[in-house]
Design a binder for these strands. Structure first.
Ligand SMILES: [Mn+2]
Ligand SMILES: [Mn+2]
Ligand SMILES: [Zn+2]
Ligand SMILES: [Zn+2]
Lengths: 138, 138
DNA sequence: GAAATAAATGCAACTTAAGTGCAAACTTAT
DNA sequence: ATAAGTTTGCACTTAAGTTGCATTTATTTC
């Protein structure tokens, strides 16, 4: 059994052909991808299966969904160890308005925000939009 | 000429009947509203007109669009004075997962975030999800 | 004030992404 | 080998956003 298989098993995802392909696909890029990106990356296989596959990955905690404000859901691999049952730390996402790519800045945690009385925080989403390193040329 | 009319004129929006109604509608609530909310708030008038009206408001800087992660665009009045030509300061938004309402926390500015080399920030979106004061009962 | 011009409105249609139902194919357990 | 459960593919549905175009309404020019 290869390494890829064992990662999926670790997340309690049965390693079918499409699942292995999609996991490899996600590993090959370090940017968040849309369902359309995934679809374009595969010759065969249909949209619904890919949709359900990515949703399975999400439910099992292998990927997280990113809402970068473009109106289309993107997905990226969680890098967390399956050992610590905790959800991956909240980190910020950067969306480049030039190349339209979105990346996880996993080292950049969302700073603590104090809310008005009575407000309880459960989750956060911080997206910074601008120009990425590749596009700024700096 | 009423006060409402003069606000619209200040933003260079011609005060038609529907525009006055929509502006009043937005003023009456202090939460962000979807196009559907607006549509339900009016007997007459059609979706397209309301859509184009809110987009006109947005272009002219009277409202800002909020992406709270629910997948539906919401809109809320800008409170900024038209005098300072600047866009309204970036503030955070709170989305209550209990009542599904989203509010502008205009006093809560988004803290400064330092980005990796080469990344240029132009805009930000910070949404906190949780339970609002009304729903937490505290 | 009437004619010409421009802006706003209403209706129908289109686009895109997301999601569901169901039967066929495939896998795992008995 | 059979039965039960899971995954896959196809067709179809929903919802939000958006555009084209003709009609109506407002503004400008004469
Ligand atoms: Mn991420
Ligand atoms: Mn706001
Ligand atoms: Zn870029
Ligand atoms: Zn609430």
């Amino acid at each position: 059994m290869g390494e890829i298989e064992s990662v999926l098993e670790k997340y309690q995802i049965r390693p079918t052909a499409i699942r292995l392909l999609m996991y490899k696909f996600l590993r090959e890029r370090n940017i968040a991808v849309t369902l359309n990106d995934i679809e374009s990356g595969f010759e065969k296989s249909d949209r619904t299966t890919l949709y359900r596959t990515i949703k399975t990955f999400e439910k099992k905690g292998l990927v997280h969904q990113i809402d970068d404000g473009t109106g289309v859901a993107k997905y990226a691999l969680d890098e967390k160890q399956v050992e610590d049952g905790l959800p991956q730390d909240l980190h910020l996402h950067f969306h480049c308005e030039s190349c339209n790519e979105t990346v996880c800045l996993t080292d950049h945690k969302i700073p603590h925000i104090s809310l008005p009385q009575g407000y309880i925080s459960r989750d956060m989403n911080l997206v910074i939009k601008g120009v990425c390193d590749k596009c700024s040329g700096k």
